[in-house]
């Protein structure tokens, strides 16, 4: 076994165990943390495949941003775990059947002629100075520019939908209206009252 293979099996084992724990652990915070571990091991596996940019992006985006947000959400929401697990045993047999079927199909694919080591040899590695990020960047902005722009449109749609669905103007809440505030004139706020001066004789 080469060192690379050892690394692969190590991280693959961590990945599988932590993924299993994500769905079996009782505490949702722990299960989110195991998901972080799973992402991290997957990123390490990608590093061994020389996909550095993807590996870094996975750690930065998923571990750094998405999962942290997710942890906040889990901690802030009051999740009733017992209720969530209520149907678990009922759905387990069906889930197991589907899982076994999928695993069987995957096995058929993995051990087929088309995916054997002979028909899909390991591609030759790149030289040490080769920049994965640069190659990806030039592809994304040239060959795949249309798909890239469409992905941007998808993000825009997601933002629009998310804001439209969650932003509510409650009539009870008091807002500041800056555009109204700057329009205020002296006449609206200040009323000059001419008060009669106190007559001399009262003093």
């Amino acid at each position: 076994m080469t060192f690379l293979q050892f690394i692969f099996y190590l991280f693959a084992a961590i990945l599988i165990v932590s993924s299993l724990l994500v769905v079996t652990v009782r505490n949702p915070v722990r299960s989110a943390l195991f998901l972080v571990l799973a992402f991290f091991s997957a990123a390490c596996l990608w590093l061994t495949l020389e996909a550095e940019f993807l590996a870094i992006a996975l750690v930065l985006v998923y571990v750094g941003a998405v999962m942290v947000l997710f942890l906040f959400v889990i901690m802030m929401l009051d999740i009733d775990i017992a209720k969530m697990r209520a149907g678990f045993t009922n759905y387990l047999p069906l889930g197991l059947i589907v899982a076994v079927l999928m695993a069987g199909e995957l096995g058929l694919v993995m051990f087929s002629k088309e995916f054997s080591a002979e028909s899909l040899p390991r591609p030759a590695g790149q030289i040490a100075e080769y920049s994965n990020t640069k190659a990806l960047g030039s592809l994304v902005y040239t060959d795949y520019v249309f798909a890239f722009e469409l992905a941007a449109v998808i993000l825009l749609v997601a933002i629009v939908a998310a804001i439209a669905l969650t932003l509510r103007r409650r009539p009870v809440t008091r807002y500041q209206a800056p555009e109204q505030q700057v329009k205020v004139r002296k006449e609206d706020r200040v009323r000059l009252v001419t008060l009669p001066t106190r007559p001399e004789e009262d003093a």
Partner: peptide, 21 residues
């Protein structure tokens, strides 16, 4: 396949949003 999938997702996201509106 890339444009096909991106198109499918773009449409689907818009539909989810419109229904939930």
């Amino acid at each position: 396949l890339l444009t096909l999938y991106v198109g499918v997702e773009l449409l689907a996201l818009c539909l989810y949003g419109m229904i939930a509106m």
